Structures are given as C-alpha cells and as structure tokens.
Amino acid sequence: MTDAEWAVVRPLLPVPAWLRGRGGQPEAYCHRAILDAIRYLVDNGIKWRAMPADFPPWDRAYAFFRRWRDHGLVKEFHDRLRARIREREGRDTEPTAGVIDSQSVKADAVVGSDSRGFDGGKLINGRKRHVVVDTLGLLLGVMVTAADTGDRAAAQVLLRQVTDAHHQLKLVWADGGYTGGLVEYCLTTFALVLAIVKRSDDQKGFVVLPKRWIVERLFAHLMHTRRLTRDYERRTTSAEAMIYWSLILLMTRRVARPHPRPA
C-alpha cells in the first residue's frame, strides 16, 4: 500500500479485541504489513508457503486471514470501504438498486467433491460465484457454491442475505437465467422487484446489455486477480473471503486517488 492508501485505510480497520479491553494477545505484526502480504498473495496467486521474506511469516499472515474470515471482519472492512466510495460519488451509503449474476470457474485439485460440481451450460467442473453488486459495480454480497447449483436456487439464499443487510434495496436486475417463480418469490418475500434484462432474439454477435455489463465488469476484475482465475480454496468461505480481498485491493486504490472536483 502507498502512504496515501494507508492513510485512508487505517481508520476503517476493525479494532482488535485486545485494544477494546476484551482480552486476547496483542498482535505481533503491524496491520499494514499483514494487509500487504495478503494483498500480494491474492494479486499474484502464490501459495501461502511461498510468501516472500519481505512480509511477515506465512503462517502469521494465514492466521490473520483465517481470523478475519471466521469472524466476518473482512466483510466488515470491505463494506466500510464501499460506503466511503459511495459517499465520494455523491451516493447514499445504502443502495436502492443492484444487479445479480453468477460466474462458473474451474476448481483446483484440492477442492473436494462435496463443494464442486459440473456446470453443463458452461462445461466447467468447479465452483460457481453468485454475486450482487450496486449500480457502481461495488459488491453487496457473494456466495460460492458447487458449479451445478442452479442460479435461481442460489439467488433465493443470496438475496435474503443481501436484503437483510441492505434494507433500502428495492430493485435488482438479472439475466434470463433468473426467470420463473423467482420473480414472484422476491416480490412477496423481500418486497424486491427482480427485473429481467433479456437479449433480443434478433441481435447477433456481442451486444452490451443495459445494467448487466456492470456485474460483468466485476467478474472481469476477478479474473485479472491471479488467485481467482480458478478456485484454489478448500473451503467455500475461504473462496468468498478471497473475493472480498480482491475487491478491497481495488477499492483502496480507488479511494486513495484524488477525487476530481466538478468544473
């Protein structure tokens, strides 16, 4: 991280329990060094044990990653950064509209059969990432499942999580894979309008579809993060945490840039 990034990031970090008088052992390494180590691993796709000597020992970085994963601290940190970016863009911190979609990726050999499957539509043996983003392309929720999990079934669970966390969300755009009973289910259960954006039958070749390109841009960023080009995580919770860390890397760079003043 640059000094400008750290100046923005430091106040947004979750406060360790031992600093709040709740017990626990003080951490031996600076948060900045640990964050840099995890960001390096996610961005470059290395193994934990291949952590360069410039960073803290790999087992300390992994212990930090695991603790933040298990206690939801990585999501808390991510959500604080997202709120800061929305404020910079002149938006309310809570979104009212979003976009949902999924991405199937190949799974590494370490991924067990209990959390992997075959996506017959994409012909991919691995896992599927289900995401909801706001209209700025910032992540609102993510769920990783086996690749053979249906989009509609996963959307019921994911949209429940997202609407519980974002009470002002009223509209979500989706592609044709989310049609059927899910539209009525969202309206009656979550008071959420699920708007289907379909591709016209007479369109040929690549066409940018309204709203759906927003979530595709997020998927493109994930595939440029080497740790996420395929799923290397044994647990789906670790796969979800890696997605949050990838977007934290993107948002810290974005929030540290000088904001252009209106003319």
Score class of each variant (00 low, 15 high):
Glu5Asp: 11
His224Ala: 13
Asp43Tyr: 12
Met223Arg: 11
Glu27Leu: 12
Gly141Pro: 03
Ile248Ser: 06
Ala50His: 13
Arg82Val: 12
Trp68Leu: 09
Arg127His: 07
Ala97Lys: 04
Gly21Cys: 00
Val144Phe: 08
Val172His: 03
Asp231Asn: 10
Val183Asn: 07
Ser115Asp: 13
Leu136Asp: 07
Ala61Tyr: 00
Tyr244Val: 05
Asp36His: 11
Phe190His: 12
Glu216Asp: 10
Gln168Tyr: 08
Gly150Trp: 11
Lys106Thr: 01
Pro210Met: 00
Trp58Asp: 05
His259Pro: 10
Ile196Glu: 06
Arg60Cys: 13
Pro95Thr: 08
Arg160His: 14
Gln203Leu: 12
Phe190Asp: 10
Gly181Tyr: 04
Arg217Glu: 05
Trp213Arg: 07
Asp231Met: 08
Val132Leu: 03
Glu216Leu: 01
Ala220Glu: 05
Val162Leu: 08
Val9Trp: 00
Ala33Phe: 09
Val99Ser: 01
Arg66Met: 14
Val208His: 00
Ala220Lys: 05
Cys30Lys: 15
Gly137Asn: 06
Thr163Asp: 03
Arg88Trp: 03
Arg160Trp: 13
Leu123Phe: 13
Asp54Gln: 14
Asp92Tyr: 06
Ser115Thr: 15
Gln25Val: 15
Pro56Asn: 04
Ala109Cys: 12
Thr145Ser: 11
Thr135Arg: 08
Gly141Ala: 04
Arg10His: 11
Gly120Val: 10
Gln25Leu: 15
Pro210Thr: 00
Thr145Arg: 07
Ser115Gln: 11
Ala146Arg: 03
Asp54Gly: 14
Gln156Lys: 15
Val172Phe: 07
Gly21Ala: 00
Asp201Met: 04
Leu140Asn: 01
Arg86Met: 01
Arg22Leu: 12
Trp48Tyr: 13
Ala50Glu: 14
Val15Thr: 06
Ser246Lys: 08
Ala7Val: 12
His167Asn: 14
Val132His: 00
Leu171Ala: 07
Cys186Arg: 06
Arg226Tyr: 06
Gly205Met: 01
Thr229Met: 05
Lys128Asp: 06
Lys122Met: 04
His166Gln: 02
Leu192Val: 10
Leu81Glu: 03
Ile124Gly: 01
Met143Gln: 15
Trp18Ile: 10
Val8Met: 12
Glu184Val: 15
Leu222Glu: 00
Gly45Gln: 02
Arg80Ile: 04
Tyr62Asp: 03
Trp68Pro: 08
Leu250Pro: 08
Tyr178Asp: 02
Thr2Arg: 13
Leu158Trp: 07
Ile38Gly: 04
Gly24Leu: 02
Thr189Arg: 12
Met242Glu: 06
Ile34Asn: 02
Phe118Lys: 03
Leu19Glu: 13
Arg230Asp: 09
Asp59Cys: 14
